[in-house]
Write a protein that binds this DNA or RNA. Structure first.
Length: 843
RNA sequence: GCCGAAGUGGCGGAAUGGUAUACGCGGCGGUCUCAAAAACCGCUGGGGGUCAACCCUGUGUGGGUUCGAAUCCCACCUUCGGCACCA
């Protein structure tokens, strides 16, 4: 409080004026909208009444509405609000439409930031995470969303990760989890390996910290997601945004081709290669192995060995360090051996080059410079011939200046010459298959999912390594493998588990002799791949979920969240479901039937919000000053939800004013003299009400919150004018007010509940059915008929709806404004769009 | 480079073949006030006009289809997002 004497004279005066105004208001009984009072009041009541607890014995059809769970980073920012408030509005709307809606919430609680905090501030990750959850719960509750808190799940809780480990064991048992030595992406800052999906951008940086990654050879655990590559390309059972579907398709990267064997001069060995262009095989003038190809050593002749090994060394260093160069030279080294083209018996030099990746196809390719850009560059560099075998449509027979990768007519291709490249593709593939030297094959870009993380704060991988028994899964009845509480966090970032003797040393579950535990933990995306399953029955302890309740709720009917998870969480969770189905744990194919991706909320300066830019919006502040309802409604009003957009502190004030005016319409209607409004006035009011219900219903269905709110604003503006007229005494007025409150309920739940109570509605507004519109009441009696001459608007006429064409034409031709443009011209024709427009075409 | 989305007043946006700019912000004018703020009421794309009627023009740029195009087609430009030698 400011001491009284600190007030300057003018401040003193305005204080007095404010006091007088307040007194006047009380005397006049004009009550003001006060969200800071009504919001906590209703939140408390809803909680006490378990208003949002979803039950399985409800007779209405079930609807599982889910929003991606938040990560326990510590503070709820406006981005969380943007993801959750509109989603809550849609869930509430769905409930009012007659569904038994479950809208759960939980926390994604494992992960690096907790561990970083431990290293930096000496606070245990568990404590840090739990404190954050406590704080976030309070912030989430201030939003007034209809979350069923009784279903809350926290992924770092042993009662949760026990089942994460259980899923791992099931996957292992069914051959879907395996351990392999592989060159993996390693973040030198986070000191852990990463899945391919977590490495981003041109410079291949770590998704979390931005540090460029390096390659490291490590023994790691993988999930066999590639087994599902083909099925994951099938989106026919789900209704997901095209954007996500495209991204997943590209990520999986299916390509059809032929795998065939190249011969080797002076050796019975074969080199399998993969190509998507078997039609170009006669244009092969060299072949290339990846530097890491297992045959390199054997096929390198002594006189080339030194050079080859130097290149291999260089390639390896490149893979580890030099990842920033975008303009990579396509160089390589001849290894002294010749490969044989099985189609024409030609001998071609065999190279190694780092543009051929060991991780795709067979790690070896045929080099067809005329019809592949990379091969073209390579052949140019080493002076290799570039014969054309697919003639471009208007080819003049001259050497190509660039690779031609399109379709054309086959030339210089033996008996295949003259075929179109498309026909030749099939013909050559057929011949290779008949001769037993090749086979049609589908390749995917997708790699298996690397789940090992060399960090502490994750679910331990339930595996024991025994000198005698090898890899031994921890038996189910010994789950969970608990994370030790007393771990030491080293600033080197190395996993504390490695140095925790009691954790590391154990006995083999198989033979009972001393053995060591796996010290890596699981990728947190493993935890979030099944959290939606857990929500169906969170306390259940005989399995990850209660099969009966699971069957009732699953699959998720509507999922919402950010697009950034398109090729990570959203792909993993689909894989997870399919894997569980094949194991027999679940009986459906897809986890989430419909998906909606919200956009990103930007700072007031139209830039991405960040502390360094100083453009971060704190939702708590707005909740304190303007209320949660205003903040919710404003976020929905900014623009289309999937587009995101910049925050505006002026914009939110506009929405706040709107809510004040709603309050004014409902709580403080004027008192016009007694009397009856005219039938026309009543019809007009009803038209407004029913048109608005129709518009808002359509918009809510399609997630168009911005235009729904605009329609409610229009209706309220109408009511503000009407409230001084006699219509306030009519049933149409009560209907209008009721409808307005009901339509606001999903968007501004506290305000709606308060107003609903004040008009005497039965508690709660959120259990009321959504209002229905009457098409007849919504229909316009008079419409504006636009009169055009040659497509230019020349007049606007107010006419009764449903006007006949003849009558419309008569009126249009009767218009003086129109006559000016048609009087001395020939009328070619008229076009009539009922209740909208008439266009007179003249010459 | 390839793939995808999008370009509309001063700003966020609305309109997906038929009145361009709904709704909100901002701005201008007014009411209330000693004054200001708040609130409320008007006006508000640009240019012209005897500032009235009215006219011209206008949805990234240039073409096209159509009686009529922000909307459909072609080419280009810009911005954002995804992919990164995937044979």
């Amino acid at each position: 409080m400011v001491p009284r004497r600190a007030l300057r004279p003018c401040a003193k005066r305005s204080f007095l004026v404010a006091c007088i105004a307040a007194v006047v208001e009380v005397v006049m009984k004009k009550e003001k909208y006060n969200p800071t009072v009504i919001e906590p009041k209703w939140q408390k009541k809803w909680e006490v009444d378990h208003l949002y607890h979803a039950r399985e014995d409800d007779p209405r059809p079930k609807f599982y509405f889910l929003t991606m769970l938040p990560y326990t980073s510590g503070d709820l920012h406006i981005g969380h609000w943007y993801a959750m408030a509109p989603s809550d509005a849609k869930a509430r709307y769905t409930r009012m439409k007659g569904y038994n809606v479950m809208f759960p919430i939980g926390f994604d609680a494992f992960g690096l930031p907790a561990e970083e905090a431990a290293i930096k501030h000496g606070i245990h990750p568990y404590k840090w995470t739990m404190a954050n959850i406590e704080r976030m719960r309070g912030q989430l509750k201030s939003m007034g969303a209809m979350w069923d808190w009784e279903r809350e799940a926290i992924t770092c809780d042993p009662s949760y990760y026990k089942w994460t480990q259980w899923f791992f064991l099931k996957f292992y048992e069914h051959g879907l989890a395996y351990r392999a030595m592989a060159p993996v992406d390693w973040c030198p800052h986070c000191n852990t390996s990463l899945a391919r999906e977590q490495v981003w951008g041109e410079d291949r940086h770590c998704e979390r910290c931005g540090t460029p990654v390096i390659k490291k050879d490590l023994e790691q655990w993988f999930f066999r997601i590639t087994k599902y590559a083909e099925e994951l390309l099938d989106f026919s059972k789900i209704d997901w945004p095209e954007r996500v579907v495209t991204m997943q398709k590209n990520w999986i990267g299916r390509s059809e081709g032929v795998r065939f064997d190249l011969g080797i001069k002076g050796s019975p060995k074969k080199i399998p290669v993969f190509t998507t262009r078997p039609d170009t095989v006669f244009g092969m003038t060299f072949a290339v192995l990846s530097p890491e190809h297992p045959l390199v050593d054997e096929l390198t002749t002594p006189e080339h060995r030194a050079e080859v090994e130097a290149y291999q060394f260089k390639a390896r260093r490149m893979a580890e360090i030099d990842r920033l160069s975008t303009e990579r030279e396509r160089d390589g080294v001849f290894i002294g051996t010749y490969a044989i083209n099985p189609m024409n018996g030609e001998e071609v030099p065999l190279y190694i080059a780092d543009y051929v990746l060991m991780t795709y196809g067979t790690g070896a390719i045929m080099g067809v410079p005329a019809h592949d850009e990379r091969d073209f560059d390579f052949a140019r560099r080493y002076g290799l011939p570039i014969p054309v075998v697919i003639a471009p449509p208007d080819w003049d027979g001259q050497p190509l200046k660039a690779a031609y990768v399109g379709e054309g007519t086959m030339v210089n291709s033996g008996r295949f010459s003259g075929l179109s490249s498309r026909e030749g593709w099939e013909a050559i593939a057929d011949e290779m298959e008949q001769r037993g030297i090749g086979k049609r094959e589908v390749q995917y870009r997708l790699h298996d999912w690397l789940i090992s993380r060399q960090r502490y704060w994750g679910a331990p991988i339930p595996i024991v390594y025994c000198a005698d028994c090898g890899i031994v899964p921890v038996p189910e009845d010994q789950l969970p493998v608990l994370l030790p509480q007393d771990a030491e966090f080293l600033p080197t970032g190395e996993s504390p588990l490695k140095y925790h003797k009691e954790f590391l040393h154990t006995t083999c579950p198989c033979c009972g002799r001393p053995a060591e535990r796996e010290t890596d933990t699981m990728d947190t995306f493993m935890c979030s791949s099944w959290y939606h399953m857990r929500y169906t029955s969170p306390g259940y302890d005989k399995g990850p979920f209660d099969p009966v309740r699971y069957k009732y709720w699953m699959p998720v009917d509507q999922y919402t969240g950010g697009i950034e998870h398109a090729t990570m969480h959203l792909l993993y969770t689909r894989f997870f479901t399919k894997a569980c189905r094949d194991i027999g744990i679940v009986d459906h194919d897809e986890p989430m039937l419909r998906l909606f991706n919200q956009g990103i909320i930007l700072g007031e300066d139209n830039e991405k919000m960040s502390k360094s830019r100083g453009n971060v919006v704190n939702p708590d502040e707005y909740v304190r000053t303007m209320g949660a309802d205003t903040t919710r409604a404003y976020l929905m009003f900014i623009g289309p939800w999937d587009a995101g957009g910049p925050w505006s502190s002026r914009g939110i004030e506009g929405v706040h004013r709107f809510l004040h005016r709603v309050w004014d319409v409902v709580v403080n209607p004027a008192k016009p003299p007694e009397g009856q409004a005219s039938p026309e006035e009543i019809a007009a009011l009803r038209r407004m009400t029913h048109k608005t219900i129709r518009k808002v219903t359509d918009d809510m269905e399609a997630f168009r919150f911005n235009t729904a709110i605009a329609a409610l604003m229009e209706m309220n503006n109408y009511l503000l004018k009407a409230k001084n007229t006699l219509v306030v005494h009519s049933e149409a007025w009560s209907e209008a007010v009721r409808s307005l409150i009901l339509m606001l309920a999903p968007i501004t739940p506290h305000l709606a509940e308060e107003l609903w109570e004040r008009i005497g509605g039965p508690y709660s507004v959120h259990t009321q059915p959504w209002p229905q519109w009457d098409e007849a009441a919504a229909a316009e009696e008079m419409v504006t008929l636009v009169v055009q001459v040659n497509g230019k608007v020349r007049d606007r006429l107010s006419v009764p709806a449903g006007l006949s064409e003849e009558k419309a034409r008569e009126l249009a031709f009767g218009s003086a404004k129109v006559q000016r443009y048609i009087s001395d011209r020939d009328i070619v024709k008229t076009i009539y769009v009922p209740d909208a427009l008439i266009n007179i075409v003249v010459k």
